[in-house]
Design a binder for these strands. Structure first.
Ligand code: FES
Ligand code: FES
Lengths: 143, 143
DNA sequence: CTAAATAGAACTTATTTAGTACTATAAAGG
DNA sequence: CCTTTATAGTACTAAATAAGTTCTATTTAG
């Protein structure tokens, strides 16, 4: 069904919430409450996003998370990559040597690369801010 | 990991083989041999692609499959849709009502639609022929 | 020192995808 | 008109992946 994982979807949801008050420290359980997503999952996503440099964290009492950059500096691609791994439609794309079973006999080795690049650049060009606002040039307008 | 299924990947591989002799009837087991893919899987894919109107089939002795249209009339999107279901990155896009658990509280209902449309149109614009040739305007050039 | 928070890893469960098997139908040829 | 070779369709099983949970360690304010 060619889709991103639920993790990435949740991730955007959480980031959207964080973007509403970019300066405030928010705890995992607090975010779980406001988003309605299960707490352990939220916590896991927050850890991952922190590791990827999208969020900053503070430990200890009164700790929590906040955005490292503003929403318009965070490409959608970065979020997806952090939570879902590399954006790469097929097993036989660039670099990935061992994944494809029929690489030897295959007549279209690496031909998907163009499609990959297309989608990747589309997701890199779009920022979290644009996703939240909708209706910018990059997104289709809806009357 | 945002990817298409192996089925779609195999499907393109099989279509590539069929496109080499667009007039010839090829059997499932024959295609399994030339592509090196497991026979039952090939047969399943061929059935699906026939149902989707991408292939034509002939039953009985000396039966087999051939392309219904030429490779430049088959959008990549059609192949993926046939084998993988609709191209729709997220659960909460247009139409899909029941999939998203947090739809009520969610602040970005349907915001992914723009991204979806972007990717979908990219895949609709690219044909099987272009995928096989590579190096056309739509695909990134590689020196 | 304690309570409240994140960090990180390991594990279990659920979901999805891939692969297999089986039955039915159709056509060609003796 | 029966046999053989092929596709059509469906249902089932197994494998892979993704999601969710749990537990332990670390950090810091009070
Ligand atoms: S399908 Fe993987 S290398 Fe061709
Ligand atoms: S995440 Fe599904 S409706 Fe918002």
């Amino acid at each position: 069904m060619i889709k991103i994982s639920r993790m990435a979807d949740y991730g955007v949801l959480i980031l959207a919430e964080l973007a509403r008050e970019p300066e405030a420290l928010r705890t995992a359980s607090g975010l779980s409450d406001t988003t309605g997503l299960p707490e352990p999952t939220v916590a896991k996503i927050l850890k991952t996003l922190t590791g990827a440099g999208i969020l900053r964290s503070a430990r200890g009492v009164n700790g929590g998370y906040l955005l490292q950059k503003t929403a318009d500096q965070i490409p959608v691609a970065a979020i997806i990559t952090a939570l879902d791994g590399p954006i790469c439609l097929t097993a036989c794309a660039d670099g990935v040597e061992d994944s494809c079973a029929v690489r030897e006999t295959c007549s279209l080795k690496g031909r998907w690369n163009g499609v990959n690049a297309l989608i990747k650049s589309a997701l890199e060009a779009m920022t979290l801010a644009e996703l939240l606002e909708s209706g910018t040039e990059k997104v289709q307008k809806k009357a």
